[in-house]
Design a protein around this nucleic acid. Structure first.
Lengths: 233, 233
DNA sequence: ACGGCGCTTCGCCGCGGAGCGAAGGACAGG
DNA sequence: CCTGTCCTTCGCTCCGCGGCGAAGCGCCGT
């Protein structure tokens, strides 16, 4: 009964344009209601309901009812990483056909709950280059200098350590290099957003599934990140 | 025109059962003809031809004409890793519905061109545990002790270094841990097969796309691998 | 308690694509 | 040069799934 190709079951869920749009919107890390996701996908409520049921059944998203709303989010960090990796393959195959959001999107964006794009890659390079993190089996650990530096920036290291994985590489499809994932990646992104070093770019048009992921570095953020980690705006 | 979800284009290629069976067969690392792949997928020659054209167009496989045959192989190591990762997600979601080949398949198999399953994970653990390889940004490098040990086993280190990446982690879906990929992973697998420490298990029934990937450790192999790296059969 | 809203279920329609059979190139061997 | 083999292209049929409208269910506000 079970298909000999385990990946096919998951692939059919990703293959539909409406479901793909929903998952892309959820890559922003936000929890969205069924209605919002229906608008994002450009379909009616009944169709969206059916799609979300299938995504939940396939373990790609998690649902939490709250009053008369039902909030949906990606089921895990692995799902987010898988989506980014798969998107990167397409990019590698045909760099010619760049999607319309290309440049703006490559500068800075969210990958689920951590920073990606040129900003994410620069952050990764800054952390490793200054010796704030060092490789360990299965990922990265913070050095003494790193703990001090990150704490000075306002990163919640205790929260980062609470994650299943402290820090690991996540392939950045647009830059073709690794950026930082795991608890540390999440807390750094949260810290930057909290301090308004980075802000979300509001959607120009309603229902753009990518819009929620685009980020802008504020002047204050450029200064602080440049001083601490040598990241150029 | 371009879909906002870059991954959807690749996903549709993986979502069809016939194409999935073909890709699974190609995960053995062998180059197969269109006819062989048609039998594996259980479809006629015309359908297979159309599927293979789409897979090539999508950059998932590479084709090399040779006489009146056309040999097909996976386009790159990234494709193989992506397929294994995607398959692992399914496994994580519903560990209850294990596929029929479960146990035999989890013991030892090929992941494209390197070893996977319990054997692959044990190899990874042996290499790191004995300090033969040590983490570096973007993967692993061999230590002095590792170079000596691997050369003594008969692994072609020069060939391994010729690969785009010397050694990196590839997620093992069945064990939920990393096994070794990259040039070193390939050369270790090649060495074990060449020396008949490991042999391919012949397919019981024609057209099983998984059959080509199953491996068995020979008594000689168990002895040598146990001595060198503490790998239990 | 009642109306409103969000979401789901049901029934039906339409389209895309996956399959085969038949016919048309391309290549090796005699 | 002809024959057999391997693969592709073409024309066609058919099933599956994604879409909507209508109706049903559950939770909130007043």
């Amino acid at each position: 009964m079970t298909s000999p190709a385990a990946f096919a079951a998951t692939a059919v869920l990703l293959a539909d344009p409406a479901r793909a749009a929903m998952l892309t919107a959820l890559l922003s890390g936000e929890a969205l209601t069924a209605g919002e996701l229906a608008r994002v996908a450009g379909i009616g409520a009944p169709a969206a309901s059916a799609h979300l049921a299938r995504l939940a059944e396939g373990g790609l998203i998690a649902v939490q009812p709250q009053g008369r709303h039902r909030y949906h989010r990606l089921a895990s960090e692995e799902v987010a990483a898988m989506l980014e990796t798969l998107g990167g393959l397409t990019e590698a195959v045909s760099p010619a056909r760049r999607w319309p959001h290309g440049e703006a999107f490559r500068t800075a964006r969210l990958c689920y709950d951590h920073l990606a794009g040129r900003l994410g890659v620069a952050l990764h390079a800054g952390l490793t280059g200054r010796g704030w993190i060092t490789p360990a089996a299965g990922g990265w650990v913070a050095t003494e200098a790193g703990e001090a530096g990150l704490a000075a920036l306002g990163v919640d290291l205790a929260a980062a350590r609470g994650a299943r994985r402290f820090a690991c590489d996540c392939m950045d499809w647009s830059e073709r290099r690794a950026h930082l994932s795991g608890g540390l990646g999440r807390e750094i992104a949260a810290c930057c957003l909290r301090r308004h070093w980075i802000t979300r770019i509001p959607a120009e048009r309603e229902g753009d599934p990518l819009a929620r992921r685009r980020l802008r570095v504020t002047p204050e953020g450029a200064r602080r990140l440049g001083e601490a980690l040598g990241i150029a705006a």
